[in-house]
Nucleic acid binder design. Structure first.
Lengths: 236, 236
DNA sequence: ATCATGCTGACGAAAACTGGCAGCAGATCC
DNA sequence: GGATCTGCTGCCAGTTTTCGTCAGCATGAT
């Protein structure tokens, strides 16, 4: 049995045991040395498995690695499918792909009748006006937001004037035609928004920005609210 | 990337495509030679995956493989949240509610770090131009589509001319500003689209329409394609 | 303190993996 | 019927990974 097959097996074995199991036992069950078992566990963890090992106790597979079966009422399925279709249609390639992939994951743990519901869903996103293509990879923006990293941008404003900035990005706003990166601009020492299609180049730096993303968002909302009370921006 | 990771990936790629995919494409997607891909497929099959390969066609993964999919990667969480936010922002109340509730259901099976990811997601749907309110409850339209029931409509066209129709509804198309109910109109004996905000009253009848929804959709697409692929369809 | 257990590093022999090629067979398209 | 696409298999040589062993350290239970 090859290593890759063994990993699938190990996963199943772990799933079977609810109580902590020692590495020695696991190694015995799949017929491999203890050292190799440790390596296998590490492999699975590297792929996102939340296998908890405690010295003196053993291993437990915490829920959250494998997707458990899910149930949704039909209307919720429709909502999920419609939302994912919107993302697949209107967001950039990576995110669109992710939407399809997420849906496929959900589909795989649905009972057959619900899966049919999902596949045959009759709510569609109509193709709209073409969305200006980004020169840069938006996945970088999202990653910088997630990890709270500073971004070095080259940007052209509405007049075509170019500038270079360092920005602390904390949100991405999707309009029908345009996407705005929202962040704190070190150049202006203030909040600024940037159309993603006008960003010429972007580089994610190693430096983390000093404020937490959620706080920046909160502050930004307050400023916005003070500026234009009617122009609100709802998060949820 | 090690072989074992690749196999998990391949499984997910297969899940994503519902149409048959050629080995060449799969090999490209996971970055491996065609020969190796055939070996990988064989490995998965050996472990019980029901991957069907037909010469001249490609591969399809039949659902029900013994191993449930792995947990969502962060990017897929972002995609789901963004999609649900769009639905919550742009669809009618019932569906918006369903989107929120579906998300909560997914959140419940997420490990803590991913749940945080979900709650703190920084991708937002910006409020757009106001969407004309529906006079009727769109949930009825969806239910009729799901159950393939005839609808009795009172409708006003662009000129304000009122009419009464019986329609076999099979799809709902979401434009940025407008939603169209698409169906077979008994009055015109042809396919027609109806802006949901121009439907004055709607009643779901007990009668099931004689054709299956998926077939109607297929026919409608053919007609559309024959007419003008580039010409966007207009509401009655 | 002692033991069970998790975890890591090093190393060399063994095994698996990989890509390229060549060829066959079944499906589909024209 | 012929061209083309596609699945599938065998072979081979170079490369990479894998594996067990040994040795040692850390942590938690008893």
């Amino acid at each position: 049995m090859s290593r890759s097959e063994r990993l699938f097996d190990l996963l199943q074995v772990l799933r079977r045991h609810r109580r902590p199991v020692s590495g020695r036992v696991l190694a015995g069950e799949i017929g491999v040395s203890l050292r190799t078992l440790y390596r296998d566990i590490a492999s699975l963890q590297a792929q996102g498995a939340t296998i908890e090992g405690e010295a003196g106790v053993g291993y437990v597979l915490r829920p959250g690695f494998l997707l458990p079966p899910l149930m949704f009422p039909p209307e919720e399925i429709e909502a999920l499918v419609l939302g994912s279709r919107w993302v697949a249609e209107r967001a950039d390639g990576r995110l669109a792909e992710a939407a399809r992939s997420a849906l496929a994951r959900i589909g795989a743990v649905l009972p057959p009748d619900l899966r049919e519901e999902m596949e045959g869903s009759a709510l569609f996103i109509a193709p709209g006006a073409p969305i200006p293509a980004d020169a840069i990879d938006p996945a970088i923006l999202r990653k910088a937001i997630r990890t709270e990293r500073k971004l070095a941008l080259r940007y052209s404003d509405a007049n075509g004037t170019a500038s270079e900035r360092v920005v602390w990005p904390f949100a991405l706003a999707f309009f029908d035609q345009v996407r705005l990166l929202i962040g704190w601009c070190e150049l202006r020492d203030d909040f600024r928004s940037f159309r993603t299609d006008r960003i010429a180049t972007v580089e994610m730096t190693e430096t983390r920005y000093p404020t937490r993303r959620a706080d920046l968002l909160r502050q930004w909302k307050q400023v916005k609210y003070a500026q234009h009370a009617q122009e609100s921006f709802s998060a949820e």
